[in-house]
Design a protein around this nucleic acid. Structure first.
Lengths: 212, 212
DNA sequence: CGAACAATTGAATCCTTTCAAAGGGAGTGG
DNA sequence: CCACTCCCTTTGAAAGGATTCAATTGTTCG
C-alpha cells in the first residue's frame, strides 16, 4: 500500500451539528478533552502537533469525506482549517455502531505508510508521492488545487519549504508535472511521477513473504 | 511523552501456549493470517517490515512483559527473535475482556512518538534516546545489555550501522555512557544523556496549548 | 590459530538545510 | 489607477550531517 493521507470514511447518518470555519481557524487544540468526532464536508483540514522546541508537525491533511477526531480521551493534535471549511460534528456514541475498532486499525495502517515515507524516502519521492495523492484524491490530473502553503507541505513531509519548492521546480523541469501558479498543477506524466514517488510497482510497499 | 518502544502491558491470565525460539527464529511473517497474540516472557523480539526495494525497517523491539500481535486480520509485520525467546501465545478472544480498544490507542500514541523521532531528531538524539530507553526498560543504569546488533539498531532508528557506531563512540568520548564490549553499556551522566536525547524537559514533547 | 562476521574508524561524496536575496501577487493607500 | 508594502514562493550559494566507499580492528567459533 502506498503512502496516502488517512482516508477513513464512514457512511453518513443524521447530521448533528454543522461547523463552519474560515482559513486558519482552529477546530480544537491538542490537550483539549475530546467531545466528538468530525467529518469534512468541504475544504481541507490539517492535523498539527506543536512542540515546545518550537517546531510544528503536520501529521495529516483531511479532505472532503474524511473523518477525524475519533479519539475519546484527550486530543493529541490540533486541528486547523487550511481553507474555508464545512464540517459535521457527531457524538462518539455514533461511531460505535459503525465500526468499533476498524477505524483505529485503518489509521494505524496509514501511519505505517507515513513512517515509511519519512524513514525511507528522499525529498523527491516524498513530494512526488504527495502531489500524486492530491491528484488521486481529487480524481483529476489536470488543474489539481494545492490548497496548502509550501510551509505546510514541508511540515508534513519533514522538509524545508525551500526543498519542497526546489523539488517541485525539478519535477516541472522534467515535465512530470506543470504548475499553473503556485497553487495548481497538472500531472503530465503519471507513470514517471509514480516512478519518482517510488511506487512504480504496486508490490513495492509491504513485501509479502511466501508462507512455508 | 518521550520516545519509547511500544510498552503495551496486559495483565496475565491463564497461559495458553508456551513458545520457545532461538536467536533469529521467526514467530510469524507479514502476510500471514493472524492467529492470536503474544506476550514476551524472556528475551527480545523485533518487528520487521521487509520491502521489495530490499530494505528492512524494524518498527519496534519488544521486551519481557510486552505484548504484540493484537491485529486480527493479517500480520502487518514479521516478528523475529533477537535473542533466545520465551513467549506465551493467547487467543484473540482473551484480549476483548481486557482492554477493548485501548491497546490500539496506546500503540498509536507510541507510534506518534516514533514519528517524531524519525522526523525531528538527529542521529545523536536518536541513539541517545534509544540507549536511554534500553536503560529505563531494564531499570538499571549499569551493565545494560544491548542484545541487538548495530545493524538492527540502525534499521530501527533509520540510520546506517556506521552512523550508529560512530554516535555511540561519540557519546562514550563525551563520558555520557561507557561501553563494556559492544553489547553492554553503562550510563555515566543521565542528565546529559537525556539532554542529548532532546528530552531534558518533560514537556518538550507534545506541547500542551492553554485552553481558552 | 585461522576463518567469518560484527564493529569501528577514516575519507570523500551527496543530499538537505541554512543563509541570503530576488521575484511575484494581492491588497492598501495615495 | 499606480505605487508601495507585505508575504509567499522561488532561486542561488555555502554549510552541515549522514551516507557511501574503503579499510582496519575485534570477537566468536570451529
Amino acid at each position: 500500500m502506498a503512502y496516502q493521507p488517512s482516508a477513513v470514511r464512514i457512511p453518513l447518518c443524521h447530521p448533528s451539528l454543522l461547523v463552519h470555519l474560515r482559513p486558519e481557524g482552529t477546530i480544537y487544540r491538542q490537550g483539549d478533552a475530546a467531545n466528538g468526532w468530525y467529518e469534512v464536508r468541504r475544504g481541507v483540514v490539517r492535523a498539527c502537533r506543536y512542540f515546545a522546541s518550537g517546531d510544528r508537525h503536520l501529521t495529516t491533511f483531511f479532505y472532503a469525506g474524511d473523518v477525524f477526531g475519533i479519539e475519546r480521551e484527550v486530543r493529541e493534535e490540533t486541528m486547523e482549517a487550511v481553507t474555508a471549511v464545512e464540517l459535521v460534528r457527531r457524538d462518539h456514541a455514533d461511531i460505535d455502531k459503525g465500526s468499533p475498532n476498524g477505524n483505529l486499525e485503518a489509521v494505524l495502517r496509514t501511519m505505517r505508510g507515513y513512517v515509511h515515507l519519512l524513514g525511507h524516502r528522499t525529498a523527491e519521492q516524498r513530494v512526488a508521492a504527495f502531489l500524486l495523492t492530491l491528484s488521486l484524491r481529487l480524481g483529476t490530473s489536470t488543474g489539481v488545487p494545492v490548497p496548502m502553503s509550501r510551509t505546510d507541505i514541508a511540515d508534513h513531509l519533514r522538509l524545508t519549504m525551500h526543498t519542497v519548492s526546489r523539488t517541485i521546480s525539478l519535477l516541472c523541469s522534467r515535465k512530470l508535472i506543470a504548475m499553473s501558479g503556485p497553487q495548481t498543477f497538472s500531472v503530465l506524466d503519471l507513470k514517471a511521477l509514480r516512478r519518482a514517488a517510488g511506487q512504480e510497482h504496486p508490490w513495492d510497499e509491504p513485501f509479502q513473504n511466501e508462507h512455508h
